[in-house]
Design a protein around this nucleic acid. Structure first.
Lengths: 344, 344
DNA sequence: CATGATGTTGCATGCGCATTCATCTTTTTC
DNA sequence: GAAAAAGATGAATGCGCATGCAACATCATG
């Protein structure tokens, strides 16, 4: 029952042309007369002929496949990014081959697949897990771009949001609102996104003369981690009147815990800001002030790099820092000095 | 700089064996002496040789690639499913090639890619957009499985949650809580998931002698659609004391709108139930009673079908209905007015 | 009309590996 | 110990398409 697909050679024989002609008919810009191409394409449609991409990959060096390495699909930021990225890649004729790296399992095995499929480029969206060494090995000899992860030492191109800009914007915003005791809640502490946001935030807080009331070490980027962190903040530093969470999903957990578990009002008692601007941040219930990552521009830049091959191996690595935008919503508001309700 | 990868032939020549031997060394179960294989693998590791998957695909009929057709990554249910699915597929040596179908764009173009890459199987996760005809065409001649979408007429295998069971469980639960005026909020009305849930719910509601106070036509599966629908419910049928939303993301929007916009208490005034059991449903703030789809089992079944080739073309289509489980949380509780819930 | 330039076509070959077949080696069996 | 069976290996071929090359056709130019 499994009808074997028709090949170019068979089609050619039926029409009475050479197999080359068929190949050229399907190759944009190939040297072929317009009427011949037309004729072949028409017959091809009739015969339901589709060029075999695998064979094409073997002949050409290109596969038209981009390997996308992910590991954290829990944080809604990533599915949204992947969706836009895969759409944009499709528009330039590239398909996305997913490499879903599971924490703890043997990376070599999983990544050797990445080497065997001759993907045209590798886009690493996973902020975590992979060491620089592993990344280098996995992307050896092919174009590679890291998204939202900067690695200084090694030759890998990166596209990332200007985390420091965002963190400073949040600090400035807190300051302008009259907040004075601010806290930072970390994400995964060894990620560049986290350390950049933290360092810039802390520095700015000091510059502005605010007090860094506490700093919560990160465990992961998740709603529940955000809840736990928020409780630690009110426990460690009850006077805290503003919290900057390393990302939105943490902040959202934090808001819920602050309101429902710690009995604080947001934003009256504690202002909350996040980072990313995921869809949930815009839900009226959370209405989270956050620093919006320029996702569309990140995608555009990445796709352009892929298309132009400017991230090819051997070329100097390109590091793109894109600026984002502070989105001010209801989770932050001016401080009301004097009437601070301190339960407990 | 782009070091061309070493080929089997080159490696063979260096070791002083035939290319066949190299190929066999990497082929489990091939006829080759253990010590020779060992030697080859060792040299291969040294020389950083990795079999070229593309060439392998061309020789064998298998590509070890599964096409995954998605269209709706907004609903968190799908990213979660895709993550588990891609992991499970990786474990049986299959990679996932993403086909992200954008609404409105020319499907033929996007799906012709699906035909050109000789994927071993196609898994369609998109509940929407694709017509049965399009699906048939896209999966022509290859194994295909639809997840959460049942199409009766055509020869396609499906794996789905027992939507009717879930809807009945919700109706029963509402009844047991003493709710009497229940509403249904639809998702995308032309999807099988929606119609199955609606029909079973309405039927059961009637059987139990409850009143279907209103029914909101669906537009999409989204938080904001859920909010709008909830407002329509309280507007159309103020006496409604329980709402069954076609899925969780609708229900979550509904809860927020009911509480914050309509001024109703959940669950005291209105009980709310959803369907799916996405992560957000378990967040303390929502604490949503919902019918849990057996995602892990769905993935297991799908992967097994792929592995066994039981969904191959020509074979009779397999339709698997998996039962889920009602997860009772805080968004539903016994009605206070008059008639109480039945014990135990 | 002669010449070259340009455009079009088919032939042949190769991409890198899997696999069949024939050959040769080792083991088993009576 | 001889014959047969099983195992191991290499040479050769093909998977389906892209492309360099040569052959040929068409056209412009002098």
């Amino acid at each position: 029952m499994k009808r074997k697909p028709i090949t170019a050679r068979e089609l050619a024989r039926m029409i009475g042309v050479s197999q080359s002609a068929v190949s050229r008919a399907f190759t944009p810009g190939a040297s072929i007369a317009a009427d011949l191409r037309e004729k072949i394409l028409q017959h091809a449609a009739e015969m339901d002929y589709h060029p075999n991409a695998i064979a094409s990959m073997l002949s050409k060096s290109r596969t038209n496949i981009i390997g996308i390495v992910v590991s954290d699909m829990q944080n809604p930021f990533y599915p949204a990014l992947i969706e836009k990225l895969s759409r944009a890649l499709q528009e330039i004729g590239q398909q996305s081959l997913l490499f879903n790296i599971a924490r703890g399992s043997n990376l070599e095995d999983q990544l050797s697949a990445l080497r065997r499929y001759n993907v045209d480029a590798v886009i690493v969206i996973s902020a975590t897990i992979l060491s620089a060494q592993t990344l280098l090995w996995a992307t050896e000899g092919r174009a590679a771009i890291l998204i939202n992860r900067i690695i200084e030492d090694v030759d890998l191109s990166c596209v990332a949001c200007d985390n420091a800009q965002g963190a400073r914007a949040v600090a400035d915003h807190f300051h302008a609102l009259g907040r004075r005791h601010v806290a930072y809640v970390a994400g995964l502490s060894h990620t560049s996104t986290n350390s950049e946001r933290r360092n810039a935030f802390i520095t700015r807080v000091a510059e502005l003369g605010m007090v860094l009331s506490t700093q919560i070490e990160g465990s992961e980027y998740s709603y529940h981690a955000g809840r736990r962190a928020a409780m630690k903040v009110v426990e460690n530093a009850p006077k805290t009147d503003a919290i900057f969470f390393a990302n939105d999903i943490l902040a959202i957990g934090g808001i819920d815990a602050l309101k429902e578990q710690a009995g604080r009002r947001v934003p009256e008692d504690i202002a909350v800001a996040g980072f990313d601007d995921i869809a949930i941040a815009g839900w009226p219930h959370y209405d989270l002030t956050t620093f919006r990552q320029p996702v569309d521009e990140m995608v555009r830049v990445v796709v352009q790099m892929v298309e132009e091959g400017s991230c090819a191996p051997g070329k100097p690595p390109i590091v793109k820092r894109l600026s984002g935008e502070l989105v001010i919503r209801g989770s932050t508001a001016p401080a009301h000095h004097g009437c601070s309700a301190m339960p407990g």
